[in-house]
């Protein structure tokens, strides 16, 4: 599992990727821009094909098998990425599977951002008892192997996309809470917060209007890195049989079913793997690039 990345990234220094001397400053800034623009553009293209393309053009259904068209190789007429052993169109399954990945990633990150962000902010801002209790609860989640938690939740709620989202949120909420808490601790005693407090601003207003905008860059870059992890984890749940149940098309399902044919038709595993890893790389690169650009830790 590349699970450690989530926790690790929170402690990674901001200059990680693009720090350093040597290359001229202009080259460096251009590289930094490229590092955000290229993966960003790739993601936009992929999102377009997953969500909008199927509305504009007819593509074969991802869950209707054509029994006369099985095991077609890549670049077959009518099936650009071929068909699999059952006769599903691989291209169509990739696009619909991508939808699942992006939906799950977006939902899990949004839930983590809002719930975890609020948790962390409140814990750090209130301090004292509230913080002690909230942090102990977070400690429990941290000491608890995240994957076990996710598996247990996925198992108890039963396989479905919504349940996968809930299960993975159990992973993203504590992570966001940690980041938000650390950032709030740094900001809590800054003059502008103290001034707001002294002038009698209500706590929720300070949290939402003064603290939240300052946490936004950090939490947003963190959510990009988290989205990459979510997509990998969603695939892992599918792979282990705890995720979105077949025949729904997901990248994890495609890899799991393709496994049986790996020595004869490696493309059944290869194609979804390429999409999965490429998406994950793009998200990580964007997250890292933005983090370096915004100078957040």
């Amino acid at each position: 599992m590349s699970v450690p990345a989530a926790d690790l990234l929170t402690t990674a220094p901001a200059q990680d990727v693009l720090g350093g001397v040597g290359a001229g400053p202009r080259v460096r800034s251009r590289l930094r821009n490229l590092e955000i623009i290229v993966p960003g553009a790739l993601l936009v293209v992929l999102l377009f094909f997953c969500f909008i393309w199927p509305l504009l053009y007819h593509i074969p259904s991802p869950t209707v098998a054509d029994l006369f068209e099985v095991n077609r190789p890549l670049w077959s007429p009518g099936h650009i990425l071929g068909t699999d052993a059952v006769g599903y169109d691989v291209m169509s399954r990739i696009l619909y599977g991508g939808r699942v990945s992006f939906e799950v990633a977006a939902a899990v990150q949004a839930i983590g951002l809002v719930v975890g962000g609020l948790f962390g902010m409140i814990a750090a801002y209130r301090g004292g008892w509230t913080e002690a209790v909230l942090m102990r609860i977070l400690d429990v989640f941290i000491a608890f192997p995240s994957l076990v938690l996710v598996l247990a939740i996925a198992d108890s709620l039963g396989p479905s996309e919504t349940h996968v989202i809930w299960a993975l949120s159990a992973f993203s909420i504590p992570a966001f809470a940690r980041v938000a808490r650390a950032a709030t601790l740094r900001l809590r005693d800054q003059p502008f917060i103290v001034a707001a407090r002294l002038s009698g601003t209500r706590t929720w207003r300070i949290l939402l209007q003064h603290l939240a905008p300052n946490l936004a860059p950090q939490l947003l870059t963190f959510s990009l890195l988290g989205a990459s992890l979510t997509i990998i984890l969603e695939g892992a749940l599918d792979f282990l049989g705890y995720g979105v149940p077949p025949p729904t098309a997901t990248w994890g399902n495609m890899i799991a079913t393709g496994q049986s044919f790996i020595s004869v038709y490696p493309q059944y595993v290869l194609v979804p793997s390429v999409f999965l890893v490429a998406t994950s790389i793009c998200l990580n690169m964007m997250g890292d690039g933005l983090r370096a650009r915004w100078g957040v830790r």
Partner: peptide, 14 residues
């Protein structure tokens, strides 16, 4: 970047 982004089940299979 690639090694952080690669899913272990994908890596394992390959």
């Amino acid at each position: 970047m690639a090694s952080i982004s690669v899913a272990p089940y994908v890596l394992g299979l390959f």
